[in-house]
């Protein structure tokens, strides 16, 4: 039951996005109502999930019932519950603002892209698998490209071009890092990686550390952290207002991923530093 509620927060938005993509153009008012109802429902579910005792012990969902290190897992705990609630509450406010200011009618498919973005965000917060994280990041980025360009305009196009290209290069780095990790350790499940890290032979440790720093670089690009923030002013300054609000959550995906990984991998990195000093 709790597993279904957790899966709902990811699967419901993409289902809704599919419906909205069909409804959007012909019945714009119906699309508004569907999107608003869906977002309110999502907000309610994430709120109940966070305040109920569900997250006290992490809930693990094995997709397709494949056992953990082989299949993809989604993990729900207090931290991801908090991020889900944050996402759905910001989304609700952004959507209300977009409807109030008619921002959603300036271009096609605002509502479908909005829900697709929520799908990517919720998935990225829940996933316990590095490659699955890559897929969700791409989903949320693709939706964000569409939302950023919503309504059109010169500056938006220029800011969007920078944003898209920087993120494409970032995705390439992400794949290099994930590939290296898989090549050394043979798994991409985050919990399984943590288990296998102590057994990595000493001559492979530099490879693992390189992969981690590459991953952190990518996440810092996505989070627009200090020297890697150059895409952000162009994208945020010209994005439609409610979308800029939603983008504020998007950059947190990078920080959240760092938070998830750094706890697992800091022992490897520090032990490598001590051996290098010797």
């Amino acid at each position: 039951m709790t597993g279904m509620a957790v899966a709902f927060t990811v699967l419901f938005p993409i289902l809704l996005a599919g419906v909205l993509a069909g409804v959007d153009r012909r019945f714009p008012d119906a699309a508004r109502i569907i999107n608003l109802t869906g977002t309110v429902l999502l907000f309610a579910v994430t709120l109940i999930l966070l305040i109920s005792p569900v997250g006290n012990t992490p809930v693990v969902i094995e997709l397709g019932n494949w056992p953990a290190p082989f299949g993809i897992v989604w993990v729900f705990d207090r931290l991801s519950g908090l991020m889900l609630l944050l996402t759905s509450s910001v989304a609700l406010m952004a959507l209300l603002y977009a409807i109030k200011t008619e921002e959603d009618k300036r271009g096609p498919h605002f509502h479908a892209l909005f829900q697709a973005q929520l799908f990517g965000l919720n998935g990225a917060f829940l996933t316990g698998d590095l490659f699955n994280l890559f897929v969700f990041l791409e989903v949320l980025l693709l939706a964000s490209y569409g939302l950023l360009l919503h309504g059109g305009g010169k500056f938006r196009t220029r800011g969007g071009l920078h944003y898209v290209i920087i993120n494409l290069v970032g995705s390439t780095l992400f794949l290099f890092a994930v590939g290296t990790l898989y090549g050394v350790m043979g798994t991409l499940n985050i919990a399984d990686l943590a288990l296998k890290l102590p057994d990595v032979p000493a001559d492979r440790v530099p490879l693992v550390v390189t992969a981690f720093f590459l991953l952190f670089t990518v996440f810092l690009i996505k989070a627009a952290a200090f020297p890697l923030y150059l895409w952000l002013p162009g994208a945020y300054a010209f994005a439609p207002v409610p979308i800029a609000a939603l983008f504020a959550i998007m950059t947190k995906v990078g920080l959240y991923s760092i938070l998830r990984l750094i706890r697992l991998f800091s022992p490897t990195i520090t032990s490598d530093r001590s051996t290098a000093a010797i």
Binding site: V135, L142, T157, R158, V164
Partner: peptide, 27 residues
């Protein structure tokens, strides 16, 4: 995994081509 990555890269390339064309026209 690489099959997934190829599909995603293909979609992204298609998108960035359209965006570059639009930037060429608008700017």
């Amino acid at each position: 995994l690489v099959l997934t990555a190829i599909v995603i890269a293909f979609a992204m390339t298609a998108f960035v081509i359209v965006l570059a064309l639009r930037a060429r026209m608008e700017l």
